[in-house]
Design a protein around this nucleic acid. Structure first.
Lengths: 222, 222
DNA sequence: GTCTATAGAGTGATAGAC
DNA sequence: GTCTATCACTCTATAGAC
């Protein structure tokens, strides 16, 4: 990654454009965000923007590349600092997404997921980078699950389970945005936790000695 | 629903616009699709389009309303004709989505899901209709699960499980579009089936006497 | 209801001085 | 690298004859 701070700690212009573009694409989508708006919000002139990126399309690719580096410091590292329990990290991660959604009144959702549905079809290079972002995300979760060792049954495929976590999260975020409340997301994460339990993942909860009958508050009625 | 066919079986102009707009929004997204394109594809003049819909925004709402009626005949009814087994209907439904994705080389995805992520935030009326579309979908699946009677443990919340089916499907479609292949979608549906099995849903498979250890080819390694 | 024509704003992108 | 100015085009939406 190219340096983004000069010796005085000021942010690189190119980096500032990327950060703002990433944010605006997240808030408004790719097609709904004009180049002029990005330039204005980033305090640069349109001409300067086109000095760094030869087209809006090229900017999108750079943003998706930027997102690859953004994930760790902004999303995953805080989770690892919040808890050392590798299984619980999965659910702290989901709760952090929940907090963000709550803060935004169920708007925005996942920046990568949004772009995946908006620009994948007509843009192979973007599609590839979106895929890498997802793999980046699931790779990190997979490492947690692997670190959990024998707390997962040996025959559980860690990678598949990690991808399933992403599947459930994206599906839950989508429905919560349409619903306008966090109910669907909470339901989805509850059923995911139930699945973990039934698969035989020993969670912090179950290790605290609580009797797990898989059931309460998950797929089963209360 | 307003009549869409005249006595000669010709399609109503308004209905044709809605059908074409629904298709184009699905293929290209809302913002990427121009009103002029919709008019051209529907063989009407822009002026005529604005005779029926006072704005592009109003057209979107009408399309989302159109989708509510579209779901049954185009998506759900064929599933009910394909199998009478209420549990298997869930997985036939998922396989039908899979077939559509395969036919389109992992493009397009779910028309409602795409719009949910693109237009929910800035358009409360659209958000409400998108939510209704999801509820429409899950309501139908819930009816199947309810019809399955005691093949599901009594304490399983049918509605929650139906929403989870949608969650997994949307998450799987999203990742398959980014990946460019059906692997993620197939994985997601396999893990969903595994969850059904572990929850204690008796499927056509398990009723055929196959020994279910939940495991093979699902979350567990082969 | 349908047609042609076009307004007025906004779009992505470029030129060329500094 | 940054600035101003602007091009060529597309966008949504409208006017008004038929």
């Amino acid at each position: 990654m190219i340096a983004q701070l000069d010796p005085n700690g000021a942010e690189d212009t190119r980096h500032r454009i990327l950060r703002i573009a990433f944010q605006l694409f997240h808030e408004q989508g790719y097609h709904a965000t004009g180049v002029a708006t990005i330039a204005r919000e980033a305090n640069v002139n349109p001409g300067s923007l086109y000095h760094f990126f030869e087209s809006k399309d090229a900017l999108l690719l750079a943003v998706l590349d930027f997102a690859l580096d953004y994930l760790g410091p902004a999303v995953m590292d805080p989770v690892e600092q919040a808890t050392t329990d590798p299984v619980e990290r999965v659910f702290v991660l989901l709760q952090n997404y929940r907090q963000r959604m709550a803060r935004e009144s169920c708007r925005l959702g996942c920046p990568i997921g949004n772009l995946a549905l908006e620009v994948s079809d007509g843009n192979p290079a973007a599609r590839e980078l979106l895929h890498k972002n997802f793999e980046n995300w699931t790779g990190r979760v997979e490492r947690w699950l692997t670190a959990a060792g024998d707390r997962l049954p040996r025959d559980v495929d860690r990678r598949r389970l990690a991808r399933f976590v992403l599947t459930v999260m994206e599906g839950g975020l989508m429905q919560s945005r349409a619903a306008g409340h966090l109910g669907p997301f909470d339901e989805a994460t509850a059923l995911l936790r139930d699945y973990f339990s039934r698969v035989g993942v020993s969670t912090a909860r179950s290790r605290r000695g609580r009797k797990t009958r898989h059931a309460k508050g998950k797929v089963t009625k209360r």
